[in-house]
């Protein structure tokens, strides 16, 4: 345990060093000058980016978890393989392809971007919800049933708490990836920080590009960190041993 935590700290320090190096590089190249000179533009784009991620992720959570619960009920269990296969195939489609596909139907604009982001974060959450509920040990469910728990109690007191680790991990992964994918929204007129990144690329201006990329990185790290704290609060204490052991 101690050896592992030592390696972990070293890797963590390495990653921080890399991040700092990136910032120093960005500073030299002039990204911060651009940010300092255009604070209102940056703030606007960050706001747009966050809004896109928040709406699409929230909608994905609201759809994927109920659907996952629904499909794991005994009555609908036989359709589970359909949903899982759909989710698996859906996840292999690259996000940029989803953007292109959705664009052909919904046209350009912000809504299209949100819809595409919603769709691509839906699948990992759905898959983790189903896998989490399915992985609850059958003996636990059997004991609950045998003690006279109703279906509803089994879901709320046994299945969801014991699957919470997997479900929250799905949400965390999906949301963080979503932050990165949202940068592509610029391509179909969705705005967001992708605006600066792609402008920078086409102008061969690394400074402008990084002034878009850095906020995206910071956003992803912050959201990951916040969701990590959220996990600690929500996952039952009795299950957190697993979290620590990893």
């Amino acid at each position: 345990m101690k050896g592992r935590s030592k390696v972990e700290t070293m890797i963590r320090i390495g990653l921080y060093a890399l991040l700092i190096a990136l910032f120093v590089y960005a500073f030299q190249i002039g990204a911060f000058t651009y940010i300092a000179e255009n604070p209102s533009e940056i703030a606007y784009l960050v706001g747009q980016h966050i809004r896109m991620v928040a709406i699409s992720s929230a909608a994905a959570i609201c759809c994927a978890i109920p659907l996952g619960i629904f499909i794991t009920r005994p009555q609908f269990k036989r359709f589970e393989f359909l949903v899982i296969n759909f989710a698996n195939i859906g996840q292999t489609v690259p996000s940029i392809a989803i953007l292109a596909l959705v664009m052909t139907y919904l046209g350009l604009g912000w809504q299209t971007a949100v819809f595409a982001l919603w769709f691509s974060s839906l699948l990992p959450i759905l898959r983790n919800t189903i896998a989490g509920i399915d992985s609850v040990h059958p003996a636990i469910i059997d004991a609950g049933k045998g003690m006279g728990m109703t279906q509803k109690l089994i879901l709320w007191k046994l299945e969801l708490p014991n699957a919470s680790y997997a479900i929250l991990a799905g949400i965390r992964t999906a949301t963080v990836i979503n932050v990165g994918t949202a940068a592509l929204a610029f391509l179909i007129g969705g705005g967001g920080l992708g605006d600066l990144i792609f402008t920078g690329i086409s102008l061969y201006d690394t400074g402008i590009m990084l002034s878009g990329a850095l906020p995206v990185i910071l956003l992803a790290i912050t959201i990951d960190f916040m969701l990590g704290i959220f996990e600690k609060l929500i996952i039952p204490k009795g299950l957190q041993r697993k979290v620590e052991a990893i």
Partner: peptide, 22 residues
Amino acid sequence: SIELRRSIGYVIQQNGLFPNMT
């Protein structure tokens, strides 16, 4: 069936304790 089960004690091999509860 729910009331019946609540009036009968039930113990299984893998003890079936709920890991999320104290």
